Simulated assay, not measured.
Amino acid sequence: MSSESLIKMANQIAQYFASEPDHTLAVNGVRQHMKSFWTPGMRRELMAWQTTHPDAVLHPLVLAALTESQVSA
Rank of each mutant, 00 (worst) to 15 (best):
S2W: 05
S2P: 14
S3E: 12
S3K: 03
E4G: 04
S5Y: 07
S5D: 09
L6Y: 06
I7K: 15
I7W: 02
K8W: 09
A10R: 10
A10M: 09
N11T: 06
N11F: 02
N11C: 06
Q12P: 00
Q12C: 02
I13S: 10
I13T: 15
I13M: 14
I13N: 09
I13F: 13
A14P: 02
A14F: 07
Q15M: 11
Q15K: 13
Q15V: 09
Y16A: 05
Y16H: 14
F17G: 02
F17C: 08
A18N: 09
A18C: 04
S19F: 05
E20F: 06
E20S: 06
P21R: 09
P21L: 06
D22F: 12
L25S: 09
L25Y: 03
A26E: 06
A26T: 07
V27I: 12
N28G: 02
N28A: 14
V30I: 04
R31Y: 00
R31F: 00
H33K: 03
M34Q: 06
S36Q: 15
S36I: 01
S36N: 15
F37G: 01
F37L: 11
W38M: 08
T39L: 10
T39G: 06
T39Q: 05
T39C: 00
P40Q: 11
G41C: 01
G41Q: 10
G41F: 02
G41K: 08
M42R: 05
M42T: 01
M42Q: 15
M42C: 02
R44Y: 02
E45S: 14
M47S: 15
M47N: 13
M47V: 10
M47T: 14
W49I: 00
Q50Y: 11
T51A: 13
T52F: 05
H53G: 01
H53F: 08
H53K: 09
H53I: 02
D55Y: 06
A56Q: 12
A56C: 15
A56T: 11
H59D: 15
H59Y: 13
H59A: 08
V62H: 05
V62N: 03
L63Y: 07
A64V: 04
A64Y: 04
L66R: 03
T67N: 13
E68M: 08
S69L: 10
S69V: 12
V71H: 04
